[in-house]
Design a protein around this nucleic acid. Structure first.
Lengths: 254, 254
DNA sequence: GTTTTTTGAACGATTATGAACGATTTTGCA
DNA sequence: TGCAAAATCGTTCATAATCGTTCAAAAAAC
């Protein structure tokens, strides 16, 4: 393997993991300890990473997408809050709501307050939100906890939503284009599909950074989606295209 | 694990827990007492945390309730902590553990750290506890959230445990007498029964105030229980009676 | 075929770790 | 309140892991 390619892979690995031990990187790259050490020196010289005792760490906080849950993540915070408010406003009193995991849906949950009658979710942060309020019946899907995301995944989670019917489903994703909506986590896509299938009305909250982006896993071709909620930064042509396809488009916080 | 990563994790843990004992952090990080002590010194030097006698606390109060509300019940706090430690000590490395809800089991979870391989629970606070540690696979049962307790109840929760097998189950209850163990929540009894049925080894953590008390719902006649962990305040005659019935009795913090 | 670059191993230097022990603080009890 | 016991703290020290450097062999480039 080329040195540059190896270094790029190591850098990418660190960006995802934030921390990695030397042994871990040796195993990952297949090179010897000395070589990895040298690679880390090069990467550190280019201000790409920071070396530590026993390994290295990425300079920037780890790559976070829609689903990585971090209290420190303030990117598009105001937009997401506005989107969340608009999503929550689409819920009628006493309705049953399915809530996806992800930061935008979390904001929607905050704004939802006690309007909904029943909430079904696979998001631990959303569940925490409702744990103190006794007015809303919160149904949490079972499953295995996906660590950094605070999301419950696995067959049990998928099954829960397959057997659940809701008036409204509020979801988010990591990309939307004219041909459909995309998600970046393999384990979550199936769950989201089940959420969509079991809901009368499907709402997607997507801030403007998601527009024009296609991630790894196609989630929906938009035929089963009813409403798209976004912020004023979204490209007008794509919004027009979505409207032309019969979707209701809400621009929040304009 | 490298020092920086460990320190970052300890800091994140403290941010959520507000306070943590040294022993707790030792189990959480997997390092020795000395190392954790040094880490705390480093973190304190960087003004990230504040060291206290016996542990450390975050500088700011935590933003979210998360599992704080579970630790808010301060009755018999020290005894429950000791009981939790003793329960956790009965778990072998890599074992599968079923954890009941309740403050005593929550304390056991805190002390469990990364010793267990898999943890199955219906307690939201326990799930929050493990949400940051990626070493432990956490299964959360589905169900409806019982507001104040942060416990998942209902048929789905019961079903989860009926279909689960564990090496060890750690439970608590509201009363124990010579003839059996009693629980006071109708919705939880069935779940606890399923936990007991699916575990090789059943451990009950009960502080001394539970002894001699019979609550509304009989949970077990003690034939399917293996260990009782309590504190020094428990009446000796009842402990002797339990031992006579072939139960292992552990008195924690004597 | 020669030169340059890259690689993997070796070795002393440095740093981190875990245990031990006396000093200090906290706790339990009268 | 005062005393004794227990727990915790800070320090020290030996051990283990990691780092930086050097050097020869292998691979790539010329």
């Amino acid at each position: 393997m080329q040195p540059e390619e190896r270094q790029a892979r190591i850098e990418a690995y660190l960006l995802k993991a934030e921390f990695a031990s030397l042994e871990e990187l040796v195993h990952f790259s297949g090179a010897s300890i000395s070589t990895v050490r040298r690679d880390l020196l090069v990467l550190e010289g280019g201000q790409r990473i920071r070396r530590t005792h026993g390994g290295a760490r990425s300079l920037q906080p780890p790559k976070t997408d829609e689903f990585v849950f971090s209290a420190r993540d303030t990117r598009q915070a105001v937009q997401k809050e506005a989107i969340g408010t608009a999503c929550a406003a689409l819920v009628g009193p006493g309705q049953t709501v399915t809530l996806d995991s992800g930061t935008t849906c979390f904001q929607a949950a905050r704004q939802l307050g006690e309007r909904a009658g029943q909430v079904v979710t696979n998001s631990l942060p959303v569940a925490n939100l409702f744990s103190s309020s006794s007015r809303v019946e919160l149904h949490l899907s079972g499953g295995v906890l996906y660590p950094r995301l605070g999301t419950l995944v696995g067959p049990q989670a998928t099954e829960t939503f397959s057997r659940t019917h809701a008036d409204v489903a509020i979801l988010s994703a990591s990309g939307i284009a004219e041909d459909g909506i995309y998600s970046s986590h393999a384990l979550i896509v199936d769950i989201q599909r089940a959420m969509i299938a079991g809901a009368d009305r499907v709402i997607f909250g997507l801030d403007h950074t998601k527009f024009g982006r296609r991630s790894l896993f196609p989630l929906s071709d938009l035929t089963d989606v009813d409403v798209i909620v976004t912020d004023p930064g979204a490209p007008a042509d794509l919004l027009a295209a979505l409207r032309a396809r019969g979707l209701e488009v809400v621009v929040a916080g304009k």
